[in-house]
């Protein structure tokens, strides 16, 4: 939880980031930026998947369709917010010369995507259409 508070404080006072430690090699910062962008693309893919479920599966029952779409859209929101927080925390760790922060978010995201995929497979196999 303290990690969350820390990244929230970084979001709202960006000057703190520049005040900490010393500037790392610009290539490490750029690599961190590309990782941030890759997470952002993951978030956008989840959001796009949510919209696609909502629109291109009109034969599904409303509950199944809305549930799958909301699971994907919610994962997209979390992924986008976490991408920003993680970028700030990695930048801070590099400036201070500490280890990069670890997190269980990738495992949870993988689990959720697997669950959504299983639900999709069940919908296709058992024909839960209206």
């Amino acid at each position: 939880m303290s990690n969350f508070v820390q990244s929230l404080r970084l979001w709202f006072s960006p000057a703190r980031l520049r005040a900490e430690g010393d500037t790392p090699d610009y290539r490490f910062s750029l690599a961190n930026e590309r990782t941030f962008l890759a997470w952002l693309r993951t978030a956008l893919a989840l959001v796009g998947g949510g919209f696609a479920v909502d629109q291109f599966l009109p034969d599904l029952r409303w509950a199944a369709r809305a549930g799958l779409a909301l699971a994907l859209l919610g994962a997209g929101v979390l992924c986008a917010l976490r991408a920003g927080g993680r970028w700030a925390r990695c930048e801070l760790a590099m400036r201070r010369g500490e280890d990069l922060p670890v997190s269980r978010f990738p495992a949870l995201l993988g689990l959720e995507v697997a669950l959504v995929a299983l639900a999709m497979a069940a919908v296709v196999l058992f024909g839960w259409e209206r």
Binding site: P14, L40, A43, A69, G76, A83, A88
Partner: peptide, 26 residues
């Protein structure tokens, strides 16, 4: 280095896009 404000705007635009989608689905 990327300015923290730029990262925040990019992440928040993505999150807001998804929240608009939630409003459209429900």
């Amino acid at each position: 280095t990327l300015a923290p404000g730029v990262a925040a705007v990019a992440a928040l635009c993505t999150a807001a896009l998804a929240l608009c989608g939630v409003a459209a689905v429900v």
